[in-house]
């Protein structure tokens, strides 16, 4: 597989492909993972889906910068490619191939 260069890019097809190929795995304590291949680079990725991230000294969980889950059992998760493989042009501190898309996860 040839390595696609790093580029921050969003296409509607990414979300459509990811919706078909990704699986959602619950791990407990408000933590889950999305497993599947990145629609752009094809590398297998595992994306954490969490309810909150600790950020401050005060010992309680705060909501992350991510979107707040809507009420009910539907949540929207903004996903970026988090693959570990090299992508030409990727700067330090960046990860993945640069592709991003959004998924709506419904549990019932």
């Amino acid at each position: 597989m040839s390595l696609v260069p790093y580029k921050e890019i969003h296409q509607n097809e990414y979300a459509e492909e990811a919706a078909q190929r990704f699986t959602f795995i619950r791990l407990g304590s408000g933590t889950a993972e999305l497993h599947g291949p990145c629609p752009r680079c094809g590398h297998a990725i595992r994306v954490p889906v969490v309810d909150g991230v600790y950020k401050t000294f005060w010992p309680r969980r705060r909501n992350s910068a991510g979107p707040t889950p809507p009420s009910g059992n539907v949540r929207t998760e903004d996903v970026i490619c988090t693959c570990q493989e090299e992508h030409p042009g990727r700067q330090e501190g960046q990860f993945g191939c640069g592709a991003f898309w959004s998924l709506e996860i419904t549990t019932s």
Partner: peptide, 27 residues
């Protein structure tokens, strides 16, 4: 329990930046 995944809302660069920050915060 059934889980369904559908395409979400359209995203722009600021959404991607937030998602990246979220990943960095997790790390």
């Amino acid at each position: 329990m059934s889980i369904s995944i559908r395409p979400g809302r359209p995203m722009d660069a600021s959404d991607a930046a937030r998602a990246r920050e979220h990943q960095q915060a997790l790390r």
